[in-house]
Each structure stands twice: as structure tokens, then as C-alpha cells.
Simulated scan of single mutants.
Amino acid sequence: MLAGGGSAGHVNPLLAVADELVARDPDLVVTVLGTEQGLESELVPGRGYPLVHVPRVPLPRRPTLDWFALPARLRAAVDAAGAAIDEAGAQVVVGFGGYVATPAYLAARHRGIPVVVHEQNARPGLANRLGARWAAAVAVTFPGTRLPGAVVTGLPLRPELADLVAERATDARAARTRAAAELGLDPDLPTLVVTGGSLGAVSLNLAAAGASGALLAAGAQVLHLTGAGKADAVRDLVRDGVQGAGLPGRYQVREYLGRMQLALAVADLVLCRSGAGTVSELAALGLPAVYVPLPVGNGEQRLNARPVVDAGGGVLVPDVELDAAWVRERLVPMLTDASALAAMGAAAAGVGRTDSAARVADLVEGVL
């Protein structure tokens, strides 16, 4: 029984481990616990795994009125998770954090069923901090994550990213050329990919688009993924930056790219947030990046990027310091220095992990 959901950061590693386990033993029965509202409601059935819904139970981080409703809601979720475990005859529960992980861990404990925990972020969430207390095995993405008995496995990669890692190892130039052709880009130009995730990041959008003139003047090309509803504003900024009526062909603006592996196949440098998935994928691919941690939350994004930045595989920039001037003065020289980028890429690859799904599957099989 695999439990996790709510965001791609939880669902993608879950599916990667599920695929690895089934590849090893086609007779293995895998069932997934998730919510009706999360991304898992589409991705899990789409991958061919049965999804059992568990009520969504956010754990309040500080005292609020929600505390009074928590016991009843949690009890209902634990009962639902327990019923799913019983029906599936599960022998181990593997949790990836998120809203359904806590009831899955508690239901498994009540039944004496072993638990394996995987934590994606450098700073663990509440659910995994709870589950790790009695887990049979604990896997973490980053060194230094404070969970008892933690084994560093890295973050299991999505199959399309794992395929790109293998393709780049065999013939990176061919992978780049094919991706550039599909995207309408020139494989021979220095290429910056800008992405703030599916929702975008206003600070990244403003900084990159505001420096569009300098980026193009340096002979680079840009694939700018703005996030939903933000493309028109970025296009206007780029037009202003290059002082032209039309959008330059070397500055490509899209809201979203479903096949993100194409962007990463052609990228020389990435300007991005530092979510665990982003950091892990870029390091596995050996891609240098300018990481701009999300300025809200518990500071986990800064911690996520720290190992690769300390190794020389990226640059960490506080959100408040990122603007068009920073891009012109710091990023443009970096993007146009091929030898520096090569050194950064090698450093990133040195801390990247490409076999994380297999490492987590090893822990699960050990428990089984």
C-alpha cells in the first residue's frame, strides 16, 4: 500500500517507486491511498494503479478552531485507510507524506503492519515526522534531514526524467537536438529555461522578462514558462525590453510545458524555485541552476538547494534580491561562459542521484 498525494512532489516519487517494484515483481499487488481532490486522482489511475480515497485531514501547525474537529476527522480517515489496508491484504505501507500519510501510518501501526517512510524535503513534514517514529525504514532525499534511522536515497525520478538521464549519458547532443526541434529552438545557442512551476513565480517572471534585452543581446535564447494566466504580462515585458512590436523568436514564452523533459534536454542553465523535485531532477541531469527559494513557508526550499549549491552546482539567490539587474549583471555572464557552466553541471551531477527509485524499492523489499 503506497500512500501520498496532494501535489506532484508527493505523487511522482510514489509512482516511480510503484513502477520499480512492479518491474521487479509483476505479480506484486500495489494499491495507492490518496484524496479525491489531489493530483493523484488523475495521475494514479492514469498509470494503471487502483486508487482508494481517504478523507483529506490537514494537521494544523498552530492552535486554531480546526483543532476541535481534528479528532473526529482523523478517526474517519484512519478507519478508511485501515479498511483499504485490510481489503488489499497489504503487507507493508509506504508513505510519501501529504494529507493521507498520517491516517495510513496510524492504521498500519494499529494492525502491526510495517511502515516505510520517504521524505522529499530537507525539512520533514508533520506526517513523516510522526510515521518515522515507528517506521521499519526511513528514506530521505537530502543529507542532514532529521528523521530517526534515515537512509539517504535521493528522490525517485519520474520515468520521463529517468529516461532523459539515460539518454543524456549516452548522447546528450542528440537528446538536445531532438528537443530543440520539437520546441522550435536552436540547439547551438546558449539556452536559459525559466520556470516557477505550474503556478509560476512573479519574481522570476519579472526578473527574466525585464532583462530580455540583455539576454538576447548576449546571443542567448530563452524558454520562459510563466505559469497559468501569466504569459501575456511576460510577453508585454519582453516586447518592452527589446523595444519591438513583435515577440522575438529567441525568447519563447509559454504558460506551461507538459513535456518538461524537452525543456531540460535543451537547457544550459535553469532559473527556478528550489522545490525538492526540481533540485533533485536538475542535479540528476547535471544541470546548473539559479535557485530562488520560495520566500514563504518553513524555509525548506533554501535547505533543499543547499547541498548542490555548496558543491558548486548552482547559485542560491534570495527572492528579494532577484530582479532584472541581477539577471543582467550575474546570470547573463554565467549563461555565456560555457566552461563555467560545464564545471557547475559536473558539480551538480556529483551530488545528484539517478537510482533513487531502486534505493527506495530495496528498502521496501527488505521490509517485505
Score class of each variant (00 low, 15 high):
L161P: 00
V140M: 08
R168I: 00
A172I: 00
A162L: 04
F142M: 03
W134P: 11
E160L: 05
G149H: 08
R133D: 08
G149P: 12
G144I: 08
V151F: 11
T141F: 15
A166N: 03
R158N: 09
R133L: 14
V151Q: 13
G154Y: 14
L147C: 04
V138K: 04
A135R: 05
P143T: 05
R158D: 07
V152Y: 15
V138A: 01
R168G: 01
L161Y: 13
A169P: 00
P148K: 03
A132E: 10
L157T: 06
D171H: 07
A136G: 02
V140A: 02
D171V: 01
R133G: 01
V140L: 07
G154N: 12
A136W: 11
A139V: 04
A150H: 14
V152P: 08
V140Y: 13
A172R: 10
A136H: 06
R146Y: 15
L147A: 03
L161I: 14
G144A: 09
A137W: 09
P156D: 06
G144N: 09
T145R: 01
L155E: 15
D171R: 02
A137R: 09
A136C: 04
A162S: 13
A150W: 15
L164C: 10
A166S: 09
A150V: 13
L157Q: 07
A137K: 06
G154Q: 12
A137D: 10
E167F: 06
T170E: 13
A150F: 14
G144P: 07
A139W: 11
E160M: 08
G149R: 07
P159L: 06
D171I: 00
G154S: 13
A136V: 09
R168F: 10
D163E: 15
A137V: 08
V151H: 12
A132C: 04
D171P: 02
A150Y: 15
A139D: 02
T145A: 06
P148M: 11
A139K: 07
T141R: 04
A136F: 11
F142A: 02
G154L: 13
P159D: 13
D171A: 00
G154C: 14
L161S: 01
V138G: 06
A169S: 09
D163T: 15
G154F: 15
R158S: 03
V140I: 12
P159T: 12
A162Y: 05
A172Q: 02
W134L: 09
R146P: 08
V152N: 08
A172W: 02
L164A: 03
R158Q: 06
D171F: 09
L155K: 05
G149V: 07
